[in-house]
Write a protein that binds this DNA or RNA. Structure first.
Ligand code: SF4
Ligand code: SF4
Lengths: 150, 150
DNA sequence: GATAAATCAGACATTTTTTATCCTATTTAT
DNA sequence: ATAAATAGGATAAAAAATGTCTGATTTATC
């Protein structure tokens, strides 16, 4: 029940590219060094991000990656699911037929809600909001903090 | 990013025990057969549930498992975390020192909120509510459904 | 055009996690 | 005593995650 390292690397890569700005070309080596990602592994991850249409990969001398989607349209969910596939949390979400109980199972419904909630939270996190310096509390800080003391 | 099969089996086992009622002894074989769980594997999982204080294991002829906690105090979160450990979603939740960015990282904060939200959802799901027959919409059906159409 | 610097993409290797099963010991009702 | 049941450590098999290697390809520059 944890994020894969590959997805975390993808997020870091996109943080760097978002800071550079849409369309700005950045070398793979630079990103790997600055964000503590094994360079070859980053190559593999970048392939997935490119296939998902999030970045463009440039070959040759002075090659590298460039952001295709503007940071304010790019979400954590997009980046993570580009790498690990759609989030389902429980197998019976993806294959309801794998468990005969699914049509009447209330646990199934809980997972459904949990999944929607999680994906919604990740969808709301745009990269433009993630790369801004953290000066003060965000507007919805209260609703977030309220979760800490239930 | 998916629940382990062991945790799903644990949930099913506890569903069965909750239906039987607190303190009622049920044979391991019975549970395994009724809930489609490999019996030996169920034995391993039961050890974890017992260590967490959720069930009691009785040896000998006519042995089996019995629920220690009343179903209305037993939550999905308790059962799942008894098996897979506390949910953290991202490694930097458990070990903030694993990433030097954690003190200022806004992604970190998103994961913190997502984690709290998920655990809260699972904490609200008591087994007494999970085993009731599903006749009509629950009181909070609207808030749940609203997530489906964001 | 040749060269060199960069990435691509498939195959391969290693490690970790998950999912069990085996087998002997122990417990307990009869 | 016997037999039915679970305990618990060891082990095995499978799957997933995490990288790395290598030859091919692309492209700026000389
Ligand atoms: S028992 Fe319910 S939650 Fe578990 S796999 Fe079946 S449908 Fe899904
Ligand atoms: S970059 Fe942020 S989210 Fe990723 S590991 Fe570091 S602190 Fe956690």
């Amino acid at each position: 029940m944890r994020l894969s390292r590959a997805a975390e690397y993808a997020v870091r890569c996109m943080l760097y590219l978002s800071t550079a700005g849409k369309g700005v070309l950045v070398g793979r080596r630079t990103i790997a060094r600055e964000m503590d990602i094994p360079e070859q592994f980053l190559g593999k991850i970048a392939q997935q991000l490119a296939r998902a249409g999030l970045i463009e990969i440039i070959q040759g001398v002075k090659g590298g990656f460039r952001l295709v989607v503007p940071p304010d349209e790019l979400t954590l969910l997009m980046v993570i699911e580009a790498v690990i596939g759609e989030i389902f949390l429980n197998d019976c979400m993806l294959w309801p037929e794998s468990c005969g109980r699914s049509p009447v199972c209330k646990v199934h419904v809980v997972w459904e809600n949990a999944r929607n909630q999680l994906r919604e939270t990740l969808r709301k996190a745009t990269f433009s909001s993630l790369i801004t310096e953290s000066p003060v509390l965000s507007p919805d800080a209260h609703s977030s903090l309220s979760l800490l003391n239930p």
